[in-house]
Design a protein around this nucleic acid. Structure first.
Lengths: 152, 152
DNA sequence: TAGCTCTAGTTGTCACATCAACTATCATGC
DNA sequence: GCATGATAGTTGATGTGACAACTAGAGCTA
């Protein structure tokens, strides 16, 4: 019953390994740079970007989770840590008690405003500027295709 | 003193976001599938692949760390967890005490042998088979270039 | 109003990654 | 011998992620 597995060709295997290696190194480096320059983790950055964009810098926890594509529990833990560092705060919801708002604080705004330009510069230097427009287009196209398949 | 940051063009921003999103989803899914089908995490898998390839299934801890490109401490923690589950064991080194070997156990060999075909199939289904040979070549080329830049 | 289910959100547990601190062995030079 | 430094390896603290269990309000319906 065990079918012969369709192993990858050498070229495929090589491509996959290069790709995995690149992801690991790039993510590690981008996160480390961000952390070093702004004391924000990639997760912090992401949450702050979304909050700063929202009207009044506030979003319901579940909406926030949806928009960064995380599970609620992950968001809850993350927000708890960010509250402790004063980047955001929680606010009980309007009528009744069923909702929680997450609100960016002035410190949070300052942090993201300072971090953003350097972060963009890092992404440029370590990635974007190394690719031709054509390569970038290919990458975007492939990425969309893979994501689409994953969401099926 | 604050220079105008060179923000990304819409196309660049889009490409970067698609790419990041793809990585997250793909990694998450591949790891989850691996875990579900074989009770191995991506880290376990990686360690086992390298050990199974080594003569006698044994490597010095530091060599193992080097070959999977991890820090020693990460490897040490990982090996500790794997020892607890019986996938590998540690063996004091030959003369004197300065080294430690990590050795794959029969259970470890069984686990990796069972996991590999399904894992390859997953990688194929979710990634490799979705790309044309040309796209795959581009991806490999770009990955090598980015890694090279990171290692400078 | 009691009972049910849905959704929102929190919490605990464990796996994992990183960093700094620590121990132990080896190699060298005096 | 013994100081000194380099290398190998472990450990603990902390932040982070995934998952399951739990709490609690909202809406429905009998």
């Amino acid at each position: 019953m065990t079918e012969t597995p369709r192993w990858l060709s050498p070229a495929q295997q090589n491509a996959w390994r290069c790709f995995v290696r690149m992801q690991e190194k790039l993510n590690g480096r981008v996160s480390r740079d961000l952390q070093a320059e702004s004391c924000l983790s990639a997760a912090d950055y992401r949450v702050l970007v979304h909050l700063a964009d929202a009207p009044d810098g506030r979003m319901r926890s579940s909406d926030l989770a949806r928009s960064v594509e995380w599970e609620q529990s992950r968001m809850s833990h993350q927000v708890a840590r960010m509250v402790k560092r004063g980047l955001v705060c929680r606010e009980g919801c309007f009528k009744g008690g069923r909702g929680t708002f997450v609100v960016i604080t002035p410190d949070g705004r300052r942090a993201i405003a300072e971090a953003a330009p350097r972060h963009v510069e890092t992404v440029r230097r370590l990635f974007i500027d190394l690719l031709t427009p054509d390569e970038l287009r290919t990458l975007a196209r492939v990425s969309r295709r893979v994501v689409e398949q994953l969401e099926k």
